[in-house]
Design a protein around this nucleic acid. Structure first.
Lengths: 116, 116
DNA sequence: CATCAATATAGCGTTTTCGCTATATATGTC
DNA sequence: GACATATATAGCGAAAACGCTATATTGATG
């Protein structure tokens, strides 16, 4: 069991992780935790060019991280699944651990010496 | 704050996610949750060729997912940080949610129709 | 239908990832 | 030092990711 059409959990999960494995995309996705936003809003918030913003959003939509909803000329993107939401919560709790000093950057990137 | 030598949390986290974003590497890393293993053990467990196994392990070591310890002619690899462990726990809990049917594959991969 | 604003796509060069085969290195043993 | 076992690396071609510029599409409005 644990397979659907020969797609294992590992295949699914790794695709999601890979798609989130980009600093700007992670920023975008964390921003979208607060609710849906249109491309322009995301672009301004993250500070990317229009094409790059659109490309990242399309990429994440293709990889089932995001979904979109059109409203007139605007396209609103939002988180596509509970897996994504759970993952982000987890990242956030890791971030808090790092902030609180329970965890050191050195635990993750030994070459840096101070805590995040 | 929240920056160390201009390396933000997003940079660190996205590198980790990217490095975990590969089905075989995810398998390896989940296997290593049970404790350290040497290359041969990992190779046999996951069912990869020797060079590929070694390459994935080195890759993950370079990306601060794993560390290693030599014992004679054997090299033992193990999880490098608490962030990794936390992330895996999270993935595992997501996996359980999927298994229990609370979540559907369709939530993640709409083209598939049954639950994982 | 002309035009504008919002968003997407094409095309391109560079870099990284990937899996593979062949070969090298390191360690232990005789 | 010869040899065996365990592991790593080199080198290669194919594919994908990346950021960029230029251009196209879509929808609303006059």
């Amino acid at each position: 069991m644990n397979e659907v059409n020969h797609i294992s959990f590992f295949e699914v999960a790794s695709k999601v992780l890979k798609a989130l494995g980009h600093p700007e995309r992670l920023r975008i996705v964390e921003y979208l935790q607060t609710g849906e936003r249109n491309v322009g809003e995301i672009q301004r918030e993250i500070g990317l060019s229009q094409p790059i913003t659109s490309q990242h959003l399309r990429y994440m939509q293709r990889h089932n991280i995001l979904t979109s909803r059109r409203e007139g000329t605007r396209l609103y993107y939002f988180l596509a699944s509970d897996l994504i939401r759970k993952l982000l919560e987890c990242m956030h709790s890791c971030k808090l651990s790092l902030d609180s000093g329970d965890m050191q950057v050195g635990d993750i990137f030994p070459e840096t010496k101070r805590s995040i």
